[in-house]
Design a protein around this nucleic acid. Structure first.
Length: 202
DNA sequence: TCTTCGATTGTCT
DNA sequence: GACAATCGAAGAA
């Protein structure tokens, strides 16, 4: 029986949270259905000084959720068609968040399959905008409290991932940011292939 | 008000 | 490997 990650989990430095989120379970509840997946890839965005962070030029309506309390969702729309899911970390009024970039589905596969048709299972959730579509996550959940019990969206204990299976690399798609931000190794990837991850038991 | 461009994906060559 | 799709937010005017 897995449990919801406490708010204290998110009230830590964002890079630390990003690393520890690998292997955790993202859970989406809707209309009595439950979708779940194990997080395989994350990225950390740390404060207004981080040029790659949406908050680098101050607080706006779009990024306001990042300035809120830790443990809430920051979901935004980009490229005119994609929703991306982040979770807010650190102290309130300090804008930092972890982008969930990829996961492997473990529950509610039929519904996920329907959301992602006709894409092959291996590519259902292997990108930040893909997993939001697979899990029916959009702007309505922006600011949602991930620590809320039995809520629509939460993150729970998952499977243990050995430290050596988590690789740190520079972040993706932020060429507009200057150094040193562009090269900060704040992207965390689980190097264990999804089809090799241990089976999940409820 | 106008212009630019993005924490990307999917399709086509 | 290259590029179009597509629209809201941000910054400039």
């Amino acid at each position: 029986m897995s449990s919801i990650l406490p708010r204290a989990f998110y009230e830590r430095p964002v890079v630390e949270v990003a690393r520890s989120l690998i292997g955790k379970r993202l859970v989406r509840r809707m209309d009595g259905d439950i979708l779940a997946g194990i997080i395989l890839e994350t990225e950390a965005y740390d404060g207004e000084q981080d040029q790659a962070c949406h908050a680098h030029s101050g607080k706006t309506r779009r990024n306001a959720a990042m300035y809120g309390p830790a443990g809430h969702a920051y979901i935004y729309f980009t490229y005119g068609m994609h929703w991306l899911l982040n979770c807010v970390t650190g102290p309130e009024e300090y804008p930092a968040a972890v982008l969930i970039r990829a996961l492997t589905p473990v529950q509610g596969l039929e519904l996920i399959a329907r959301n992602r048709q006709p894409i092959a299972p291996a590519h259902w959730c292997d990108g930040p905008a893909k997993l939001t579509r697979a899990f029916s996550i959009n702007g309505e959940l922006n600011g949602y409290d991930l620590c809320r019990g039995a809520g629509e969206l939460s993150i729970m204990d998952g499977i243990p991932i050995p430290t050596e299976d988590v690789q740190a690399t520079p972040r993706i798609g932020i060429n507009y940011a200057g150094e040193p931000w562009k090269s900060m190794p704040w992207r965390f990837v689980c190097t264990t292939r999804p089809d090799e991850t241990p089976a999940i038991i409820n």
